[in-house]
Amino acid sequence: MKTYQNIVLGALLSGIFMVAAIVSFVWIPYDIESLNIAERMRPPTMVHPLGTDHFGRDILSMVMVGARTSIAVALVAVGIGMGLGVPLGLAAAAQKGSLLDEIIGRGNDLVFAFPSLLIAILITATFGPSALNAIIAIGIFNVPVFARLTRGSALSLWKREFIMAAQVSGKNTVRISVEHILPNLSNLLIVQGTIQFSLAILAEAALSYVGLGAQPPTPSWGRMLADSQTMISLAPHLALAPGLAIVFTVLGLNLLGDGLRDVFDPRLRRERT
C-alpha cells in the first residue's frame, strides 16, 4: 500500500515538472526573451503567479523553461552513464577475473576517486561552460555507477541455471549477456536510473549555480538561484521558486525510485506482508 503511495506521490511531484517542461515547448505564460526592467522583482500576483525576476521576466515561465534544461541535461547525462556503464559491466561480468575485468574495475575506482564537482569544474574551465559540457561532466561519473551495479548483478545471474542452460546450448557470451542477462537487469536499471536521474538534476543545479551549466539566455534553475542570491534580502521569492522546483523534482524522483524498488524487489515485498 505504502509502496504505491510512494510511486503515486513521486510520479505526481516529478510529473508536474516533466509536464511543465513539455508544455513549455508550445506555450509559456510570458515571453522570456524580451526583458522588462520596469517590471522587475514584482512579488507574486494574479498576473505573475510567481512574481517577476531581476529583469522583469515572469518567474513561472522561467521555471517552466528551466525544467526543460534541467531534465534534458540530467536525462542525457544518465543516458551516457547507462549507455557506457551497462556494456562495460556486462563485459566485466562475462569475463570475470580477466584482465578486462580488472581494468574496468580499477577504472571505476579511479573515476570514483576523483572529486566529481572538481572535475566538472576543470572540464568546463578547459572546454568552456555549456550545457553540453555539464552533460559530459555529469555523464562520466554515472558510468562507474552503472558499470559496478551491472557487473555485480550480472555475476550472480551467471551462476543461475537458465544461463548455464543457454551456455550448454552453444550461445556465445555476448548473446547470453544481451539476450538473457540484460533483460533480467532491466528492473534494477530502471530503479537505479531513476535515482541517478534525481542526482543528476541536483548536480546540474550545482553546476549552473556556479555558472558552469547552460548559458544565458537559456534559463536554468541553478543559475536562477545564483542570480537571485544578492537580491534575497530584497525579494526572497526570487530564490524560492527555482529552489522548490529542484526540491520537488528530486524528491519526486527519489520517491518514485524507492517505490519501484519495493515493487521490483521480491525480498522487500515479502518483508512487508
Partner: peptide
C-alpha cells in the same frame, strides 16, 4: 530524510544566511 536528500545544500545555505545572518 527524503526531503533532506532532495534539498540542494547551497540553496539551503542561502536560506540559512537569509534567516540567521541577515
Amino acid at each position: 530524510t527524503q526531503l533532506g536528500v532532495a534539498i540542494p545544500n547551497f540553496w539551503f545555505a542561502m536560506l540559512m544566511v537569509l534567516v540567521f545572518a541577515i
